[in-house]
């Protein structure tokens, strides 16, 4: 059984993905931004148009890079796991890792690079602690699949899923300060900040973190 679509939800008025809009809200206008795993450049375009950022990208697929080139976005064909090491310290105001950390081979190393290269890092990821995932695994005994993460366990690029709690702990381990954290429910709406972590971890469909080096 496939779970109902959770990602990416789009804002019906603007046509932009809700998690992209959330990320865009976190970025100061006119800043320098590196989007790691930028895909076809949709988020970078949004940031350029709405926040006038000086945006750069890294994308592993040639199709993605070509789509970015056509949009006039300076994007490098590369791999987050290997190429971030080549970027100098403090090169960007923000380094964004949007729905990509679960596909990296070394999430912790990647996160450390984000915090080294950028003054701030913005990380969004699907929450593997969501109750439906738990239901699939705990009750049905199957690896969860959704329409937007439609991969079987044996051919998925997503090799390092985590829950919101797991990610919070990783942030502690790498010495990242959480400046902002937002969980989105299955409707793509931000959940109330006053809710305790365990509620987020259970009902949050995805999370977006704004991090700073401590």
């Amino acid at each position: 059984m496939n779970l109902p679509a959770t990602l990416p939800l789009t804002d019906t008025a603007s046509g932009h993905r809700l998690d992209f809009l959330l990320v865009t809200d976190m970025v100061e206008p006119g800043s320098r931004v590196l989007d790691v795993g930028c895909g076809d450049g949709a988020l970078l375009s949004l940031l350029r148009d709405r926040k006038q950022v000086d945006g750069r990208g890294i994308e592993i697929s040639r199709e993605g890079v070509n789509a970015c080139l056509a949009k006039g976005l300076p994007v490098i064909q590369g791999d987050a796991d290997t190429d971030l090491a080549d970027y100098p310290d403090d090169a960007f105001d923000y380094v964004i890792l949007s729905q990509t950390i679960q596909a990296t081979r070394q999430p912790k190393v990647v996160l450390e690079h984000l915090l080294r290269i950028g003054r701030r890092a913005i990380v969004s990821f699907p929450n593997f602690g969501h109750w439906r995932v738990r239901f699939e695994l705990g009750i049905r005994g199957r690896m969860p699949m959704t329409e937007n993460l439609p991969y079987s366990w044996y051919d998925t690029p997503n090799i390092h899923f985590c829950t919101i709690r797991d990610f919070v702990e990783l942030c502690r381990d790498v010495g990242a300060q959480m400046e902002k954290a937002v969980a989105l429910n299955a409707g793509g709406q931000p959940m109330r900040v006053t809710l305790p972590w365990w509620v987020w971890n259970l009902l949050g469909d995805q999370a977006v973190f704004l991090l700073k080096r401590r």
């Binding site: 320098r32 750069r56 040639r62 890079v65 070509n66 970015c68 080139l69 976005l73 300076p74 994007v75 490098i76 064909q77 590369g78 080549d86 970027y87 100098p88 090169a91």
Partner: peptide, 21 residues
Amino acid sequence: SRAIVHALNAAAASVAFVEVE
């Protein structure tokens, strides 16, 4: 080519890179 791209990145230049198969 990557050496060029790395240098341009370090110089904060606007650079795109494609490796064609």
